[in-house]
């Protein structure tokens, strides 16, 4: 009887695959909740920072920071590309890379040079293959990214800006809209885009202790870092959400496949029995 045994083995193997994908789905779901929390926890800092920076920028400060002024000609740009370390999360990373590669090609056609800072193994592998000029990299951030690990990589890009090697800096990440939607986003970091909230004209300024320059410098560095951290936290939540959805789809598909195979198996078994019976009957008739 052809196939019945093979089909049974196949059903079994798909069944164990389904178990794995189901488990991964549940793990991703619980990790996603924590990643979302982390994402929200990072918000107050970024918000407070934004307020202080907006104040400092609109107050009549005698010192203007380099990050606040846009340069007239752009001959080089930098990208900080945030990706996940692991795969099996649907089209999350490829969608992001597609978007950024399109943007890079536009810049390239305009004759603009490109420097890249990669965060996460997927971006590292992809942009190495792509042949981009990767100047710094961070991988293995794990499920709880720490700001500390990002400092170095971000600093290289900020130094590049200050020393004129790049004239604009973007961060590229997946924006967490909700569990089903992750939006690949390219955001300009430097020069700092003025916030939309219309600030009333300030007639006061802070007391700077000891003086404005070092404080504004630190403030700006921290601000950029916090934005990058925020993108990493966002991307992390996206990764878990995307993985959850992908694994759910895989589990469903495995279920469907098993149902179909079960039907085929039953038919094969039935056919075997029928055949055997008819053999016996015809055998008996011949006697």
């Amino acid at each position: 009887m052809a196939g019945a045994k093979e089909i049974r083995t196949q059903i079994k193997s798909i069944g164990s695959t389904r178990k794995i994908t189901k488990a991964m789905e549940m793990v991703a779901a619980s990790k996603m909740r924590r990643a979302q929390e982390r994402m929200h926890m990072a918000r107050p800092y970024a918000e407070k920072m934004r307020h202080v920076v907006a104040h400092a920028a609109s107050a009549n400060t005698e010192y203007h920071h380099a990050y606040l002024a846009a340069r007239e000609s752009v001959s080089n740009v930098g990208y900080i590309i945030v990706s996940s370390d692991r795969g099996l999360c649907g089209g999350l990373n490829s969608n992001l890379f597609r978007k950024v590669v399109g943007d890079m090609a536009d810049n390239h056609n305009k004759g603009v040079g490109i420097n890249v800072c990669v965060i996460g193994k997927k971006a590292s592998a992809f942009f190495k293959r792509y042949g981009a000029n990767v100047v710094s990299e961070v991988t293995d951030l794990g499920d709880t990214p720490q700001l500390e690990e990002l400092i170095g990589a971000v600093k290289i890009m900020m130094d590049d800006y200050e020393e004129g090697r790049i004239d604009r800096l973007y961060v590229v990440y997946n924006n967490f809209v909700n569990t089903m939607t992750q939006k690949p986003t390219i955001e300009q970091l430097i020069p700092v885009v003025p916030s939309e909230e219309v600030e009333t004209k300030h007639h006061w300024d802070y007391l700077y202790e000891p003086e404005a320059k070092p404080i504004v410098d630190t403030l700006m560095d921290r601000y950029i870092e916090s934005l990058v951290y925020q993108s990493v936290a966002d991307n992390n939540a996206c990764e878990q959400a995307a993985r959850m959805v992908a694994m759910k789809a895989a589990t469903d598909n495995a279920g469907k496949l098993i149902d179909e195979l079960q039907l085929v198996y039953n038919k094969a078994r039935q056919a075997a029995i029928t055949q055997e019976l008819s053999e016996i009957v015809s055998g008996a008739a011949a006697v």
Binding site: K128, S136, T139, G152, K155
Partner: peptide, 14 residues
């Protein structure tokens, strides 16, 4: 130091 490390990682990878 952190910046140098990040740079080194990128270079080694390449």
């Amino acid at each position: 130091t952190a910046a140098l490390e990040a740079k080194k990682r990128a270079e080694e990878k390449l």
